[in-house]
């Protein structure tokens, strides 16, 4: 039996592992951090969708009777689990509804930023030359302005409102994605399998879409998840700075934080803490998924399903490895 026949037999014995995406998914499912992230983001999405069912009150229902005798917001009680705000609105319901704003604004902003960034980045990377220089220098100019500052400027220019926030946060994301993808496309463009595709006579567009982009997407997917986290913070930041939705009654987390500011001294700490916790949990969830994806999509871990624990395990014989600088 020749070596090739033995090898062929070995291949038949092993079960097919499926494509790289399937591999990555299998690794992701075995990563506890990513699972926690999925749980947080999952709850966030469920809350955003079913806010009207889950919330005990309407987020804009003003109940002045719920305020204390001297007109200050009151803390947690059986009627209002997280207390009421300065107008007697139920804080818990407002947090639940706030998830909608964060999720929708974040999603729209990131996906628009991602699509524009993809377009610019892949054109710059694949076409190269003067077009590349032109696009990338423009992106550099945008990157030179701090993200939140750029968003503030854009909202100031466009006027306040929901879609203006989406546009502003989206635009700040464009150069990040463009840069990332350009680098990735440049790296893939020189690969042998791209040359091979040219050698068999594939057309330029076909090569870009079936060979270069699928292999260049991994870092973009990771960045997309992390950008969701940043977008939620940016939206809250804009709201906190008074550039949130025009109607001050909108239950947006950042706006709620700002309004809580005046009542902190009178002891309404919960008004600041509860939207804060909501923001932290949502951001944490996206970050954990992003980190999990980064590990799962890392080509160096290819084919190693479920080996995360072994990597961190102690030396097999249980001996402690002496640390550097430890004297004998």
């Amino acid at each position: 039996m020749s070596v090739a026949e033995i090898e062929a037999r070995e291949i038949q014995l092993e079960a097919p592992t499926g494509g790289l995406w399937a591999d990555a998914w299998a690794r992701l499912r075995r990563n506890p951090g990513a699972l926690a992230g999925f749980f947080l983001v999952g709850s966030f999405v469920v809350i955003a969708i079913f806010a009207s069912v889950m919330a005990p009150y309407s987020p804009t229902h003003v109940d002045l009777n719920a305020l204390s005798a001297n007109g200050l917001p009151t803390g947690p009680s059986w009627q209002h689990w997280v207390g009421v705000d300065q107008l007697g609105r139920d804080e818990f319901s407002r947090i639940l509804y706030g998830a909608r704003y964060s999720l929708v604004i974040g999603l729209v902003a990131v996906s628009s930023g991602l699509s524009l960034g993809l377009l610019f980045g892949s054109v710059a990377g694949y076409v190269g030359g003067f077009v590349d220089s032109l696009i990338m220098r423009f992106m550099d100019v945008m990157l030179a302005i701090p993200g939140l500052l750029l968003a503030i400027g854009l909202v100031a220019a466009l006027g306040q409102g929901l879609w203006q926030i989406m546009v502003a946060v989206g635009i700040t994301n464009v150069p990040i994605f463009a840069r990332l993808l350009r680098g990735s496309v440049l790296a893939q463009r020189e690969q042998d399998f791209v040359l091979a595709a040219r050698a068999v006579g594939a057309r330029r567009r076909g090569i870009l879409f079936s060979h270069i982009l699928p292999n260049a997407m991994s870092p973009v997917i990771v960045q997309g998840t992390l950008a969701m986290a940043t977008a939620i913070i940016d939206v809250a930041g804009l709201g906190f700075l008074g550039l949130g939705p025009q109607d001050p009654g909108t239950p947006e987390w950042g706006t709620m934080l700002t309004q809580a500011d005046q009542y902190l001294e009178s002891g309404a700490l919960y008004l600041a803490v509860s939207p804060g916790i909501a923001i932290v949990l949502a951001v944490l969830g996206f970050n954990m998924i992003g980190d999990g994806l980064r590990e799962a999509l890392d080509p160096k871990l290819r084919g190693r399903v479920g080996k995360f624990k072994e990597a961190k395990a102690e030396p097999p014989d249980g001996r402690l490895v002496p640390e550097v600088g430890e004297s004998a």
């Binding site: 042998d192 399998f193 040359l195 091979a196 068999v200 006579g201």
Partner: peptide, 22 residues
């Protein structure tokens, strides 16, 4: 592109010359 049907290439590095996602 049409003539490419008659001339082909085999590359040195068998790990880089096949698209890992196909």
């Amino acid at each position: 592109r049409t003539l490419r049907q008659r001339m082909q290439i085999v590359f040195q590095d068998p790990f880089a010359s096949l698209n890992p996602r196909h």
